[in-house]
Amino acid sequence: MKKVSFAEFGGPGVLHLVDAEEPHAGPGQIRVAVRAAGVNPVDWRIREGQKLGAHPIELPSGVGLDAAGVVDEVGEGVEDVEVGDLVFGEGASTYAEFAVLSAWARMPEGLTFEEAAGYPSVVETALRIIREVGVRRGQTLLVSGASGGVGSAVLQIARDRGIRVIGTAGAANQDYLRSLGALATTYGEGWVERVRRLGRVDAALDLAGTGVIRELIDLAGSPERVVSIADLGAPELGVRFSGVAGSMSEALATAADLISRGKLHIPVEKSYTLAEAAEAHIDTQAGHTRGRRVIVI
């Protein structure tokens, strides 16, 4: 089979499309014929050699955690899906024609493979950081870098929970944030005052890692009211860096419920082939994404 692999840490150029042996499902796992794989910031961080504590790997290594596809192998003890079922979930080395998943859910009706591949990690992350930052119904959450996949999920999950959201993004994504129910403003010079004019902030999330932790602490009133998933230096200022995933199975079940109820939709901004994985990483690292980027097999 074809898969994307890298034999050394580094920039996008270390990614190569190679021939590899097909993986097989072990106990409690399933194998899918991958139809689409989600592209996440954690993918390029791992490729660069970051986050090795949370995602220890051995080189050469495959790439990718999220996938949507057709079940074609069921491991021992798995009883909730059968060969031929359409699923989305999380596994390892998902930039490939076949991948083994360790957590999955049936794809909600009407969802395409491309769309489904964009949900697992971002929904788990969104649910986790909303919980960790401690924001409650009736309060206001500030989301810095709100237009990407995690931001799109946070805005919609918060709205479903009765949480008011202020989101920052580039000028081109202001209407997009408003369509998701957020009060929107641009980042850049004067952004703190623009946020203040929109109202009091009870908690804040840093999704972009653009060096705004001090400002978020000031707006939220305390480091304990700020969580980052993008600034590795955040703990130096007393802010939690959230990088260890919670229950993916619970997140997938929540995602399927929200999608089925029409409360969650994350658009696919751009699709790539396996051979274009390096381009996908370059675009993802550049930011300014509206929704998700996926690799289609």
Rank of each mutant, 00 (worst) to 15 (best):
A153M: 08
L207G: 09
R214G: 07
L237H: 09
A25P: 08
L142C: 05
A36L: 06
G221V: 08
R131K: 15
G145T: 04
E22H: 05
D231S: 14
F241W: 13
A245F: 15
G118L: 11
S271E: 14
M107L: 11
T273I: 07
K51R: 13
T284Q: 12
I259N: 04
W104Y: 06
A230E: 00
E276N: 06
D257G: 04
G10E: 08
Y272T: 03
G148A: 10
L111C: 12
T125N: 11
E58F: 05
L274N: 13
L207N: 08
V74S: 06
A103K: 06
R136N: 02
F6P: 02
G209V: 10
R178D: 00
P223S: 04
G246Q: 07
T186E: 14
E215N: 12
A68I: 10
A99H: 07
L207M: 12
I229V: 15
G188R: 11
D43F: 12
I46G: 03
R200G: 00
T168D: 04
V227G: 06
S93H: 15
G53P: 01
G91E: 03
V192P: 00
I295G: 05
R128H: 15
V63C: 05
E73P: 08
A20K: 03
I217C: 06
A220K: 09
S121V: 12
V154L: 01
G138Y: 05
E48H: 13
D80M: 07
G134P: 03
G181D: 01
W191Y: 14
R35G: 11
A67E: 10
